[in-house]
Amino acid sequence: MKLSEIVNILEATVLVGNDQLDKEITRGGAADLMSDILAGLSDKCIFLTGLTTIQAVRTALVADVSAVVFVRSKNPPQEVIELAKEQNVPVLISPYSMFVSCGRLHAKGITGLDGKT
């Protein structure tokens, strides 16, 4: 599905990447441990996390994830937004918890990083 659909499903606010809402997303990973995302490399994936550190964006960059979602309405510090803008990584904020955010996406067909449902 397109990133714009993910924005709707998660009732998310787009902090960075309004120009990238056409991006295709098929998989997702949720973690507060960066290595879990780094270990499960995948194409066209979204990365949900409750950690709003600059390392969440750097992890997204090296793992090549298509977008980052901060759950539970967590607002990242300005430096995190600046890095995401500079490196062109879409960043969303969802009011839902990690559990509910994942559930909503999974119910609409987003698979795990390994492609399993």
Binding site: D32, S35, A39, L51, T53, A56
Partner: peptide
């Protein structure tokens, strides 16, 4: 607390 130190770094690199 910053999301590191899970003991996956070196195994991830080797993999």
């Amino acid at each position: 607390e910053m999301g590191f130190g899970a003991g996956m770094g070196l195994p991830n690199m080797k993999k």
